[in-house]
């Protein structure tokens, strides 16, 4: 059993999170399969290995909060309540897709849950997310903006332009720096002098919290601390989450820049498997119950696949629609 705080989450919470993380995993494995079969094209960035991060953080968000992330966004969509079918249909370029087939993998949004995508320009979402925080403060709606970016984006200039203004204007924003160790094929060691991304908030006097992104319980605890602080103090927080992606940067990346041993070592810390073990070992959940959950997810994913693959492509008349809002 891992070292944890004394305030362990409730069994029901963890079972629900297991179900959610397992859903992300099974869903994205299906996405990889559909990509390989040619149903999905272009860029397709999978979140496999990082599931605990978005699961844990989203669990601590409130209705009025907002969120934005990079192009690795499928699991975020599911976390904010999008149906598997709408996300899968978008990936397959169908009219029933969440963006009507106009956005694809990198451009998915859930407006009714204040999830603003889905951004293809590395680092741009950090300024946009700071703007969401600005709007929360302006409207005095007690909301917090949760902004995800990776170790690669951490070297973009606008990230620090945003940090500066967020600190100066005391904006309620949690910057989630998801360090998955590689910006495409460039390791953190090759892109920064000393690799210590957790120091990036210091020049802006930003509270910094470090979390183990492979451990859902740690993510739950640390993100709660970050979000609560940001909300109550109206200040930015840097939440540095150490995580790892098992797949390449995108489906077209064979990831030859790292060894197989490295990947298999990281897989021993798998966040979904670890939560499985915690539930069985520490919470007395039956293996059979968890297997039942998995079976149910597999059948839901398969059902979504059947529906999506028989769905139509967008109507040709939609090409020139949705350019301007009236």
């Amino acid at each position: 059993m891992r070292v944890r705080s004394t305030k362990n989450p409730k069994k029901e919470t963890l079972v629900a999170l297991y179900k959610q993380m397992k859903t992300f995993r099974v869903f994205e494995e299906k996405i990889a399969e559909l990509y390989t079969k040619g149903h999905i094209g272009g860029f397709c960035h999978l979140y496999i290995g990082q599931e605990a991060v978005v699961s844990g953080i989203t669990h601590n968000m409130m209705q009025q909060d907002s969120c934005i992330t990079s192009y690795r966004d499928h699991s975020h969509m599911l976390a904010f309540g999008a149906s598997m079918e709408s996300v899968m249909a978008e990936l397959c370029g169908r009219e029933t897709g969440c963006s009507k087939g106009k956005g694809g993998s990198m451009h998915m949004y859930k407006r009714d849950r204040n999830f603003f995508g889905g951004n293809g320009i590395v680092g741009a979402q950090v300024s946009l997310g700071t703007g969401l925080a600005f709007a929360h403060k302006y409207k005095k709606d007690n909301g917090v903006s949760v902004v995800y970016f990776g170790d690669g984006a951490a070297n973009q200039g606008q990230v620090y332009e945003s940090f500066n203004m967020a600190s100066l204007w005391e904006l309620p924003v949690v910057y989630v720096l998801e360090d998955n160790k590689y910006a495409m094929g460039t390791s953190v060691a090759r892109s920064t002098l000393d690799g210590s991304l957790e120091k990036r908030g210091e020049p802006f006097y930003m509270k910094t919290i470090i979390s183990d992104g492979m451990d859902i319980i740690d993510v739950l605890e640390k993100s709660k601390e970050a979000i609560d602080y940001s909300r109550s103090e109206s200040k930015p927080v840097l939440l540095c989450v150490n995580t790892y992606r098992y797949r390449g940067h995108s489906m077209s990346d064979p990831a030859t820049y790292r060894t197989k041993d490295e990947v298999s070592e990281m897989k021993k810390l798998d966040p979904v498997d670890c939560l499985y073990n915690i539930l069985v070992d520490d919470y007395g959940v039956q293996d059979s119950d968890l297997h039942e959950i998995e079976k149910d997810i597999v059948s839901q994913v398969s059902e979504a696949e059947n529906i999506v693959l028989s769905a139509s492509e967008p109507d040709v008349g939609s090409l020139m629609q949705d350019i301007y809002s009236f």
């Binding site: 300024s127 600005f134 709007a135 500066n164 100066l168």
Partner: peptide
């Protein structure tokens, strides 16, 4: 100062902040 806001010299950053704020209804 809540509605007329001096920014630092940081066009990329404050343009992005403006766009984000607009997306959330301002």
């Amino acid at each position: 100062r809540d509605r007329v806001i001096d920014t630092p010299i940081t066009e990329h950053g404050f343009a992005g902040i403006g766009v984000g704020a607009a997306m959330l209804g301002l």
